[in-house]
Amino acid sequence: MSTATALAGTRTFRPPKLDRRYLPVLGTMLVFGLMLVIGGLRYDNFLSPAVISNLFINNAHLIVLAAGMTFVILTGGIDLSVGSVLALSSVITATLLNAGWNVALVLPLAIAAGSLLGLGMGVMIQYFEVQPFVATLAGMFLARGLCFVFAPESVPIRDEGFIALTNWTMASGRWRLTAAVVIAALVLLASWWVLHRSRFGRTVYAVGGGEQSATLMGLRVERTKVMVYVISGTCAGLAGVLFAMFSRSGYALTGVGMELDAIAAVVIGGTLLTGGTGFVLGSVLGVMVLGLIQTIITFEGTLSSWWTKIVIGVLLLVFVILQRILTLRRT
């Protein structure tokens, strides 16, 4: 039965070769490592447990956003709404809690608001053929407007159950974990499993590789394309809750431009905006790189905060050009 032919070549020993797909992520890892080393050499206490713990604590919500965004971008789409949805979810959380609703009811509701918006955008994109950019732009405006309908001012949260949740930490020496970090880690784990161990996850990659091919392979493309926006919306809703935990308030103007941070993190993490290639763990690395830039600039002291944006821009430029060179060599 098994006749090896000239066409396929004979079975030869292949030295373990690095898969091209991992190169961008490795690049991000390298940058991350370099930044840690430089920071550690340059500043005292840079590599301290407190700083590293804070890196995660301050960015837990962004990790969740980036995880959701990775799903969308892997299919070749984009979700501009996540910053606004995050704000909406945090505002809903704060408003309802202060109205005396039970935490166990409020949090799922806030998250579900995100899922619902995601579903709406997904349906617009898939069934009404509105471009993802436009549909999620509409979602962004809608969520931001709704924020102000709920609460135009910042709403501090006083609910005791919620406060207890935000106060929960796990500490070992000077290492610290908040509930938000644990949740973000769980989201990551779940995203990784879904993307690499489920048919749905592989369909996400397949859609990014070629939508028509995926359809003809009999994969459920339509459902998948709607689902990624639901996932991204849900992640944004969850991130809103995490952000409310972090700031102990809900404010309609939070998360302005955060969608760009999430997109930047995903791109720096090695996911191609054309879809089909990338890893959710890369996106987390991207978030960490962004967080480290902020940390370094804080440590530097003399540099003003706007340098953060410029450095992120430059880093994006470098990564985009590197990715471009990689894809050029592939073809």
Partner: peptide, 30 residues
């Protein structure tokens, strides 16, 4: 970036979108 290097427009212009306001801040000194 777009025509010379062949980078996707959305991401090529995202770079300046991100960095641009920082540059503006730099010019006005915040």
């Amino acid at each position: 970036l777009v025509s010379g290097l062949g980078i996707q427009p959305i991401i090529a212009t995202l770079i300046l979108m991100t960095a641009g306001r920082g540059v503006a801040m730099l010019i006005t000194g915040g």
